[in-house]
Design a protein around this nucleic acid. Structure first.
Lengths: 357, 357
DNA sequence: GTGAAAGCGCTAACAT
DNA sequence: ATGTTAGCGCTTTCAC
């Protein structure tokens, strides 16, 4: 209530309002009024006025004044979309934090934060274009709109972009086309004929490349277009629904690639419920963006998910920026690892005739 | 290199070092030198000196100076341990961000960050005791040592603690004992006799309560002590290893409760590999801290995991603090939801005689 | 028991 | 093409 409508207020205004000095207000607000021997009555008046007028301390002012001059502070952040799954972010955060733990000295302190924006609306994030908050950031989980915004805006501080290529920024991403290609090859190798790709409605740079490469390679190697299933979102239930609708409509599936593992989880559920065995009836390939892929039943073959590799590249790049180095690469490609697990290891030869729903 | 050993340097020092004014330095460093018509040569000298002397801008100074006086900024954070799984944090972050999105006005801006500390070493986190960084924080995933530290330190800004009770703080946590009790009841209901509890080596407030309540209730209802399996860590592989060792040694299991779902994932793997069927040979109960519990095979019955409920309580509490309200509850208990799924729904009657390894 | 004043590091308006 | 200066909001000596 008090802290909303009105414009913000400073201790100076509090002080004049009450007819006391800013020093008095400050000490009371910092709970130092005892050692300053402020009258309890005055302290009470000050606290009440602060509440009533909706006083909110200005942290920049506080920090500027009270920080030891001998401490250099680096404020780092990871920007990620609100809607994205957290694993990549978690890894990035861990890697950054680990790097920072090593670099911390008496004179140099670091803080690492995660900041979230709404997917596709990065441009609306306040303070993004000001250079007064972070010394450096990593950005990930952007959508096309965000990438377009970044390309045109050029943030005024060091940035390393994860998982997509944006002109003017240092970007770390998986080598293009490999993921989609490997997926097709694995599915064909497992005897798949009705190659199917499952993806969410909105695509990122990465997922759209995976999709395109899959379709292109499938066309090239099988001579016909693969089936493309689009789920409403990235929740398992939405993946389950997409497959279910396809099968219910008489569609066939014997080789499935999903560009996001949470969709695979839903697909597994639907397939099992409808009596399809993985991998014998349907071979499945995922991308490894769920850290539990190995524990799926059956364990999921994955063709990407080099998050740790990407992050391992990105963190040193950010530090090179912070150090002011020149000649930092604009694009670093990591090779996505292929992890073959049971979901593409067909036990019996020949392909099944399942799939007529 | 340049930014390490030496004490930090300001634009003032840069300026005197170069024989120019601070304004010149500032404008060059902010890339405003074009509109200020600084000689390219001077700009170059300044940039080089900044690099060489390891200049790092002081963000507090920048913000203080350049922020619009009409903007009130709230800096909020979630503190979590580095080692903890991210789901709870993710939910907390989402809930906070959502609350913040609603509250944002022209005059009031919010920023939400995640900050990590190393489990058990919260006390070492620099700046924790200073009130010059955050207006309010939520703390979660602490260990005993951290709780002890917090209880004795009393942070000088609004704090809401998630998932544990610490004297002197506003805490939101699941109602005690219910989780362990429900787990026992469900396992017994599914025909379990050799009640077993699986937990990681280090316990939090929450997991130790779950464990204690489980053991106590099991004793009460069965007349004997349940089996307690301790895994080295919380990784699925470590859970798998713990169960495997037990079974390899001739131990029996027909009713398993795991105080952390990632351990359940590993347990599922071992049980399947050794030919035990869930739930027919072994009923399993988890706690719902993995958002995919519903997609496990079979879907996992859970007796806790009201993360969203906890967070839903915690966020408004934090805002009440920020508003300066009095009489904020010190302890809010949420009722953990029981979600019965296939992992405790035994299809055939009677209990199996499996379990001799 | 309280006030006055200096100044943290930085930027921007106004001077040349 | 660059220097001077006035603060941003706050805490902390020092003075009374």
């Amino acid at each position: 209530m008090s802290s909303s409508g009105k414009p913000p207020i400073t201790i100076y205004e509090l002080a004049t309002h009450l007819g006391v000095s800013t020093a008095t207000v400050s000490s009371v607000l910092a709970n130092r009024h005892v050692e300053r021997r402020i009258a309890e009555k005055t302290a009470k008046r000050i606290r009440e006025a602060a509440l009533e007028l909706g006083y909110v301390p200005n942290m920049a002012g506080r920090r500027l004044r009270s920080h030891k001059a001998s401490t250099r502070q680096f404020d780092l952040a990871i920007f990620t979309s609100f809607e994205a799954p957290l694993p990549l972010v978690g890894q990035a955060l861990h890697a950054l934090q680990r790097a920072v733990d090593v670099q911390t000295t008496t004179h140099t302190r670091y803080s690492v934060a995660i900041e979230m924006f709404h997917a596709g609306r990065l441009a609306e994030k306040p303070g993004l274009l000001e250079a007064d908050r972070y010394h450096g950031v990593m950005i990930t989980n952007t959508l096309h709109e965000d990438d377009a915004f970044l390309a045109q805006a050029k943030l005024p501080y060091p940035v390393v972009v994860l998982g997509r290529s944006i002109a003017g920024y240092c970007c770390v991403l998986e080598a293009p086309d490999l993921v989609g290609r490997h997926a097709v090859e694995l599915l064909l190798g497992a005897g798949g004929q009705h190659l199917t790709v499952l993806r969410g409605r909105s695509l990122t740079h990465t997922t759209s490349n995976r999709l395109a490469a899959f379709k292109h390679t499938a066309r090239e190697l099988t001579g016909h277009e693969p089936i493309e299933l689009v789920s409403e979102g990235l929740q398992p239930s939405q993946g389950a629904a997409a497959i279910d609708a396809h099968l219910a409509g008489g569609g066939k599936v014997d080789g499935l690639f999903s560009v996001t593992d949470s969709l695979t989880i839903g697909a597994y559920q639907t397939l099992k419920r409808r009596g399809y065995a993985v991998p014998d009836d349907v071979a499945v390939v995922g991308v490894g963006d769920n850290e539990l892929a190995e524990y799926f039943d059956p364990p999921l073959t994955t063709v990407a998910g080099a998050n740790d590799a990407m992050v391992a590249e990105a963190v040193p790049l950010l530090f090179r920026y912070l150090r002011g180095e020149k000649g930092i690469p604009q694009e670093v490609l990591t090779t996505p690892p292929v992890l073959v697990r049971a979901s593409t290891l067909r036990r019996r030869a020949g392909q099944s005739d399942r799939g007529e729903g």
